[in-house]
Amino acid sequence: MTNRLKAALTIFTLAVLASCTAKGDDPGLEYAPQMYHSVPYEPLTQIKDKDRGEWLSNREDGLGEFYNSNPNNEYEQNVRVPVAGTVRRTSNNVLPYRLGKDDIALAAEIPNPLPDTPEILAEGKRLYELYCDHCHGNGKEAGKVGVVFAGVPSYSSPAQRNLSEGHVFHVITHGIRRMGAHGSQISPEKRWKIVKYVKTLQQQ
């Protein structure tokens, strides 16, 4: 009898332990949840359920321990878009770019603030391969995504060959016609570096 009980107990423990591990939709068991869950707002996490973790909560507002959302923001998000016109403090002296999408003629006049050095060109090439080459390929033939997207021009075609650096910078920032804006992904300094590299592709 006791033998069977022992066996059953072992199997039960094994089953419980097996269910602690994470797989599929189940994140598994935590053993010190109060130390794991953030008290301040977590930018990349949002738990909107006010009762989550109520069973161990000692919060003063009486909400569940794991509740992590900012009710004052839109959609209770923990992050906010910066106020329009915000300037980064660490911008490496590159001035904020204030031209709107339609000011492309003005933009074309702006010179590239970066000097011509092999390092900057190499960095521009690296960044180009991160952000552009799946559409624009080697600058002559469209890349893999570019083929599906269709309508990706070659930089060295007569219509694109003579585009100024300011123009290309503006195109990255705000997009043009069917190309989307990439300003939110790439900082201005990196954009100018990419422009340097595109300049060499226009000549090929």
Binding site: T13, L14, L17, A18, C20, T21, A22, K23, G24, D25, D26, P27, G28, L29, E30, Y31, A32, Y36
Partner: peptide, 16 residues
């Protein structure tokens, strides 16, 4: 049992 205990609080293989 020991493996299981070690996996408590570890989210390896979580695939939501």
């Amino acid at each position: 049992v020991i493996d299981g205990l070690y996996m408590v609080g570890v989210q390896q293989n979580y695939q939501p």
